[in-house]
Amino acid sequence: MSETLTILVVDDNPSMAKILADILDVKGFEVYAAYSGAEALEILRNHPVEIMLTDVKMPDMNGVTLYRETRKTHPNLTTFLMTAYAADDIIQQGMADGIKTVLNKPVDIDLLLSLFSAYKRLFTKAR
């Protein structure tokens, strides 16, 4: 078991995914970046991931659908949603299905980092 937290960043905008991944990487997290839902599922099959940070609005499958897919194989995966549309129906469905955290875009990096740090401590303790 690693000392760090493994995070999967999913965003159809590669720059967004890459920069977030780079920042998290610099901050000491183990990060994977995916540019579509399918790519994200592929990574999940091959790598152990604890937290998934995904954009909601994506071309191939949206964030909530992706979450539902992951539930079948990774029931313990913690998923964070990122959205520019606060009052989206999809988000409401996602929250009803068990998503705990929704972050508004533009994402407040400091807030994100503090959140992940908190989860890291939590998971470490659990381990």
């Binding site: 905008n13 720059s15 920042i23 990096i109």
Partner: peptide
């Protein structure tokens, strides 16, 4: 516009 702005913001952050 928020997405690119967010990216720029994140990039500066990085």
């Amino acid at each position: 516009l928020r997405n690119p702005l967010g990216i720029i913001n994140n990039a500066i952050y990085y």
